[in-house]
Write a protein that binds this DNA or RNA. Structure first.
Lengths: 348, 348
DNA sequence: TTGTAGGCGTTATCAC
DNA sequence: GTGATAACGCCTACAA
């Protein structure tokens, strides 16, 4: 262990400026409660010595850490990376620092991560989606740690959240597909177990087709884990029968990209032979050929909004509700009507 | 501010177990220095009360936080997101937590972020690439905070680092391009100012073509900021003259994807009319059509290795050197020889 | 093996 | 407006 040179402390600054530690502390935390002359002198010393408050000490004395924790499935996924980046930027803007943990898609370790974050004094915690063991919510509540759900919004659920309505968004897309005349529908859904976002999307889609009177057997659903490859495999299965779907709706863009690429391999023209839709509108959606008709989600806006909401919860005891964010459909060339006519933006 | 329920403290546990706080502390930090009978009794109380050590207090008393900080340009970029995810996973594996900051590509705010991380008691710090103000290195050194550079490896540079040799990697690719018979070369480089990774790549490429005697005017270089769109714009410029290059080598895959898409728009066939190469081998590289010939970088391996290296530096005072990671060329269909024959994997 | 007591750096509550 | 001073919760010599 290297012998850490002693960092300058409040005391050092106080001595150097010829005032008490209390005054230095005030200069930093309540600048208006100190007269300008002394303030200038103190701040000059702060700068000269390169003083930075000691975190542990401050946490202990003030019972605040200006740290918030986030637990996400993984950063290695464009939809979380994007929002998390914006979340962190906004946190920084407001003087907070981000502590991250990831479950690597193993929900069973989330409880432990929550404990770790709380033990580290996180002033608030960000979680993705609603689905999790009730014990986690209870633990957080018992410790009075402000907790915000992101990437989902369900007006029925009392948990404070910042996100969009996955179900309603998918309903809009499904209705669009229906209006394009499609009556044989294939669906590639992400894993719904323990993932309310995927589940809501699937529900939204079923809602619409049922309402419109689509016979049950005309809707074929395959559920599969995340990944380009998995999307391709599921697509091949859906297209295998003798009455293949005219459109394959995917639970997210990554699955959809897998489907598109598999279609190419199978010498199927998208969208003439089969239409494909996605969800999320990640960068990939515009780059694949043909570009995906998908649901655009304001990831960065959501990240920023989540940061502001969570900090407000921490600082003002607010508990929302926060207004849902709006998603919107992006019409692109991967969706055609039942006659093969594309109404979206042509490639590219 | 919600009134936080008072968490159990060491003292509470000590009282409940009828021992001193020192004993409780030892049970937790040096279990073998306490007799089994009392240890059992103490640990039972710890569990019953749901005691967790207070982080701030522990940090102050022990001068260790089991926290490491990372400062990256942005999480919203596949190459950092991947490595960072692996870094975090390995940190967690070894009992550490990750504090993240991002510069959003504004190097001038890095110094401040470093201070913040150090003030928060980060036991070590991860930085991307070598290029930065010397004052930052001095600050870190003066505080004896173990600092590791990632995403780059330069054997000339004494800073401990975990990464690969950007220059040598690009040299290998450039030689391959040369061997394919290309003699009119276009280059789209990322911004080299303050970015040694981009600069080294460009150097590697110049090295090879100069060595092989390529006339100076046959190498046209455009430097541009990161982004698909920027890649496209640069590509259009390079192809504008009456002696356009037969190959366009890009500093990263994102620029290359921009180039490929712009080529489509310009009705140019890749690679028959012009070859295009990338660097990084992100997922996109395999999805774009044609797939990119590029340099594969082991992002996850690098993230894990960085975590291990940094923790070793923190715990054992090691300062490396750590062995460089190996990149390798991925031959795919975006590169053809000068006669238009593809030797890489055909699409897809 | 276990207990006592000092100190870590800050904030907050009082007096002055 | 400013200065003492008492917490805050834990670790770790040092003593017993």
């Amino acid at each position: 262990m290297p012998a850490k040179p002693k960092l300058p402390t409040l005391d050092d600054v106080a001595k150097a400026a010829g005032v008490s530690t209390a005054t230095v502390s005030r200069c930093l935390n309540a600048p208006d409660r100190v007269v300008k002359a002394t303030k200038d002198r103190v701040l000059a010393e702060v700068a000269r010595l390169g003083y930075t408050p000691n975190f542990g000490a401050r946490a202990m004395a003030a019972k605040r850490t200006f740290t918030v924790g986030a637990i996400i499935p993984t950063m290695d996924n464009a939809i979380f990376a994007r929002g998390l980046q914006a979340f962190q930027e906004q946190l920084h803007e407001r003087g907070y620092t981000l502590l991250v943990s990831s479950t690597s898609y193993r929900p069973e370790i989330e409880a432990e991560q929550v404990r770790t974050l709380v033990a580290r004094g996180a002033d608030g915690v960000l979680l993705i989606g609603y689905d999790r063991d009730a014990a986690i919510y209870e633990y957080l509540a018992s410790r009075s740690v402000p907790t915000l759900i992101a990437w989902a919004y369900d007006k029925e659920n009392p948990q404070p959240s910042v996100g969009f309505d996955n179900r309603a968004s998918m309903q809009a897309l499904a209705q669009l597909v229906w209006d394009h005349g499609h009556r044989r529908i294939g669906v590639i859904s992400g894993t719904t177990q323990g993932n309310d976002r995927a589940r809501r999307r699937l529900e939204g889609l079923r809602d619409v087709f049922a309402q419109n009177g689509l016979p049950h057997e005309a809707l074929k659903v395959i559920e599969t884990p995340y990944g380009v490859k998995n999307g391709g495999i599921a697509f091949a299965k859906l297209m295998a029968g003798d009455m293949p779907p005219s459109v394959v709706m995917c639970g997210n863009d990554v699955l959809a990209v897998g489907a598109v690429r598999r279609a190419h391999l199978m010498k199927l023209d998208v969208p003439r032979d089969v239409s494909i839709t996605g969800f999320d509108d990640i960068e990939l959606a515009r780059i694949v050929s043909p570009p995906l008709t998908t649901v655009h989600v304001p990831h960065r806006k959501m990240g920023r909004a989540a940061a502001n909401a969570l900090i407000d919860m921490v600082e003002t005891d607010s508990i929302g509700p926060f207004p849902p964010l709006q998603s919107k459909i992006r019409m692109r060339a991967s969706l055609a009507d039942i006659n093969g006519n594309v109404t979206g933006t042509p490639d590219p």
